[in-house]
Write a protein that binds this DNA or RNA. Structure first.
Length: 867
RNA sequence: GCCCGGGUGCUGAAAUUGGUAAACAGAGGGGACUCAAAAUCCCCUGACCGCAAGGUCUUGUCGGUUCAAGUCCGACCCCGGGCACCA
């Protein structure tokens, strides 16, 4: 008997699939397009990680089943190769990122082609390819033209180790997402994308899209919607250049209990600095004359904020009375204005009304500085007295000590009081604009030009940003040059700022000498549109044989001209993506950015998807987060040295075995622990499949009805489980079927064997292809080649629901709820018949010591005698 | 502190949504085949009592609802992940 030579078989079919372009969909003729997208990898490390393979295989199985179910499946792959992760890896091994990218690319593609996925290789892309990033830059300039990209000076996150600024989303628990260094604050002028403008829609659409719940929750929390009111407090006696202080509060109902105000050190500093610049001076505003103590506190608090260690035990709140007084608009009392580090500059107005009785933080602060605490919401009303507080009471209740609002429930009082003091309703979001500048080398140059002369003259594309111009479309891409000194400098500028040939430019407006922006953009901008890139015409140059696509692509439907790769019939036909699969760690990074950009491009009429169940412009109506693959209870990481390289397992056991093992160990959405010994289970399974199919030599030819029933049951189970990504139980059902087929003494019918192979095909594509081809081999008289008919384009088996119903049922007999025996009975037997059979069981007789008070009967399942 | 997951044999896990807990595997033990080993095949394996028939206990802990609870309700403990002075 020929043994199962997986390595030969796998190589053979991978070659055949590629040559016959089995996984290249016919883009324009597809009747049922199915875009099966998985997050493309960062080729940053030593090679493909088994965790990547886990994710890709899980997605591929779904796509393969869909293909067999009659869909035209498009499963693209590419590399997210620009950015800090790739650059840091190059730095670590002492290579130049541009040279290293070629090495990584080759290695990744080699590994990716071994795992047996049905990738459409001809559409692959790499984000560092100028043909690709030309469009990343184009997207940026479009956002700029619509006012969604802007440059602003503000306090930003700075990673001292990566020597660049970071977006809020890339700061995890106060540390750099990439290297774990504590992030500092720096005041810098940077490029931002106005994602906050989309906060309401990004939030609202979450209710309608079909995504893993945990990811939706993470996005909701990150966007952080709060509804409240903006309330004005007047400042006493012209101490400040401003006459009013505004606060945002979600609890206007507690206004009568606001006994002081607190402003952030940054806001206080802006008062001290007011009038320092020329324009303010001329408008006659005067600078705040703060005391020395207050000045010292403000300076110190801002400095401390810049380097605070988030891991340190929560620092004690500090603060100082500014000397300024304001008026509570409800009580008309004069209250002090304090400066404290517990108030954030970047949220709301940077100032708060403090209600110590009903806010934990204000309470703590009031206790420390002996400020008055006045209770205005009482939990039990009407009551003679409110409880004495030892902590803030933050729940709802009824108002007390609040003038004419006494007795009102706090929920109603919110808007009544807000209205009473002429406050306005306001919704605040926690989400902040996306900071995309990076002071690094290995990324997409931000395609902007700054002209000093134009700035002096007040000219520019936007009044607010004089001197700035987008690089004209015709001049894109701004190519990233190969420079020797690519290391980050830490000066707040990219290494490109040292390269004269790069930064010297001509002003697109006045034609004078100008300077090119030298920062590069965040990698997440590259990956925010790659799923469109696979369908665009951006990488046609790579294709050696022209595909139908050049002629297939319809005329652009928008007004931006044929050059816009985002508007064409293919995109309308194939987008939005049918299923997107990836890691939950991207919940508030990639998965948020990509939604934002798609919505924005739709609003700008630069992108148009086809019909979808999701709101217009949502790129991924269905997203599933896979679980994390760990090793011995710990996350795989290079520093722990427990990263599993799939290569050696594929060499040892084959891609099919590794695929099946990865999918068998736990539910796909849960993730699991990789243990080498456990691989043997599926290795044995595949060998038994091989043996069964190559030596079906049982003698009897009678058709085994039992096997046929089980086959139908398995078809249903596997079909349903694939739909819910329950691959582990689908595989277990296939194992049960194999066990029974082996055990059967009857010769197995070809149909049953074929059905079994088809069900197994998405999981183990190579072995099933080989066995399928053998099974369908026609005896040929001459050497003529047989036409290649892949199992992967065969139709998915159907099941007969009538065969799923067993003829008999196993009935459990209970006495007082305890199982005392089982017996089989004809399906559908009535209670009287079952009761008679049950009473005949010896063990039941023993326990039926008296007449039952009650008999519970569940047809075909159970009978319970209750004594 | 808040928000998500999760807690079931030696291990990974399963359980048609309230109806025989532990399917399918791994590991371990025993046996067959073999000069021997590997591979393969068969049997056993939640705990305790019992020769057996059978019984008692068992899904993180405690309590509740129910004829019946891994599943529902309440309180708590532990593990993993996310957010963290967001007013």
């Amino acid at each position: 008997m020929e043994h199962y030579n997986f390595s030969e078989i796998e190589k053979k079919w991978q070659k055949q699939w590629l040559e016959t372009r089995l996984y290249e969909p016919s883009f324009s003729n597809a009747k049922q397009p199915f875009y099966n997208l998985m997050m493309f990898p960062y080729p940053s490390a030593e090679g493909l990680h088994v965790g990547n393979m886990y994710a890709f295989v899980g997605a591929d199985i779904y796509g393969r089943a869909k293909r067999m179910q009659g869909h035209n499946v498009f499963e693209p792959i590419g590399l997210d190769g620009f950015g800090i992760h790739s650059e840091n890896y190059a730095l670590k091994i002492g290579a130049h990122p541009m040279d290293q990218s070629k090495v990584s690319q080759e290695n990744f593609y080699r590994q990716l082609s071994m795992i047996g996925n049905g990738f459409a290789w001809e559409e692959r892309l790499e984000t560092y390819d100028p043909a690709y990033y030309r469009w990343t830059q184009w997207v940026f300039t479009q956002l700029w033209k619509r006012g969604l990209a802007y440059r602003k000076r503000q306090s930003v996150n700075w990673c001292p180790s990566c020597k660049t600024v970071l977006a809020d989303e890339q700061v995890v628990g106060g540390k750099c997402e990439r290297c774990g260094t504590i992030v500092e604050r720096r005041d810098l002028e940077q490029w931002f994308l106005r994602i906050t403008e989309y906060a309401p829609r990004l939030l609202a659409n979450l209710d309608v899209i079909d995504w893993s719940e945990r990811v939706k929750i993470a996005q909701r929390n990150w966007i952080g919607k709060s509804e409240g009111a903006r309330i004005r407090f007047s400042v006493v006696g012209g101490q400040l250049s401003v006459t009013h202080l505004e606060v945002f509060t979600t609890r206007p109902d507690t206004l009568f209990g606001a006994t002081f105000m607190v402003v952030s050190p940054e806001l206080a500093k802006s008062w001290m600095d007011a009038g320092r610049s020329g324009s303010d001076e001329s408008s006659g505003s005067k600078r705040w004359q703060a005391s020395e103590e207050v000045r010292a506190y403000v300076t110190d608090a801002i400095a401390r904020r810049a380097t605070a260690d988030p891991e340190a035990p929560t620092q004690d709140k500090t603060g100082i009375d500014s000397g300024i007084r304001a008026v509570n608009p409800a009580t008309h009392e004069e209250i002090p204005v304090w400066v404290s580090d517990y108030v954030l500059a970047g949220y709301g107005t940077g100032a708060i009304m403090a209600v110590p009785a009903h806010d934990g933080r204000d309470f703590e602060f009031a206790k420390k500085y002996q400020l008055p605490v006045r209770m205005v919401v009482c939990p039990h009303y009407p009551a003679p007295s409110c409880p004495v507080l030892d902590h803030a009471y933050e729940d709802a209740g009824h108002l007390v000590d609040s003038g004419r609002f006494d007795g009102m429930d706090s929920e109603t009082a919110k808007w009544a009081i807000a209205e009473f003091v002429h406050g306005t309703r306001e919704t605040q979001y926690r989400l902040r604009d996306w900071l995309i500048s990076r002071q690094r080398y290995w990324g997409v140059p931000i395609p902007m030009i700054h002209c000093e002369a134009c700035e002096q003259a007040g000219r520019g594309e936007w009044k607010e940003m004089p001197g700035w111009y987008a690089v004209p479309d015709a001049d894109l891409p701004v190519v990233l040059p190969h420079i020797k000194e690519f290391r980050p400098k830490g000066t707040g500028e990219s290494p490109l700022a040292t390269m004269k040939e790069f930064y010297e430019a001509t002003c697109p407006s006045c034609g004078g000498a100008a300077r090119r922006e030298t920062d590069v953009s965040d990698t997440f901008l590259d990956s925010a549109w790659y799923y469109i890139g696979y369908l665009g015409r951006i990488n046609d140059k790579r294709r050696t044989t022209p595909t139908l696509r050049e002629t297939e692509v319809g005329a652009p439907t928008g007004s931006v001209g044929a050059d816009n790769p985002f508007l064409n019939l293919l995109i309308q036909k194939w987008l939005p993506v049918n299923l997107y699969t990836g890691g939950a760690e991207h919940s508030v990074l990639h998965l948020l950015y990509v939604r934002f950009l798609s919505l924005a491009l739709h609003d700008m009429k630069l992108l148009e998807f086809g019909p979808s169940s999701a709101p217009k412009g949502e790129p991924f109506p269905k997203f599933r987060a896979h679980g994390l693959l760990i090793k011995e209870g710990a996350k795989m990481s290079k520093s722990k040295g427990n990263v599993v390289n799939p290569d050696e397992y594929i060499r040892k056991y084959g891609a099919d075995a590794l695929r099946m093992y990865l999918m068998f160990l736990a539910p796909f959405e849960q993730g699991g622990d990789f243990r080498d010994e456990a691989v043997m289970g599926v290795v044995r399974f595949l060998e038994r499949v091989w043996r069964l199919c190559t030596t079906n030599d049982k003698q009897q030819t009678t058709n085994d009805k039992r096997i046929e029933r089980l086959v139908h049951k398995t078809v249903k189970k596997v079909t349903d489980d694939i739909e819910t990504l329950g691959y582990n139980t689908a595989i277990s059902a296939l194992m049960i079927l194999l066990n029974e087929m082996e055990r059967s003494t009857d010769k197995l019918t070809t149909l049953n064997l074929q059905t079994f192979l088809k069900l197994l095909a998405p999981f183990a594509p190579h072995i099933t292809e080989e066995l399928w081809s053998r099974m369908n081999q026609q005896p040929t008289t001459d050497n003529q080649q047989q036409e290649f008919k892949s199992i992967h384009t065969e139709s998915w088996p159907a099941y007969d629901p009538a065969l799923l119903v067993e003829e008999t049922a196993t009935i459990v007999v209970q006495v007082n709820g305890k199982a005392r025996g089982t017996f089989t009975a004809p399906r559908g037997a009535d209670q009287a018949a079952i009761e008679a059979l049950a009473r005949a069981e010896a063990n039941v007789v023993r326990h039926l010591t008296g007449p039952p008070k009650r008999i519970v009967f569940v047809p075909d399942q159970l009978i319970n005698f209750v004594l």
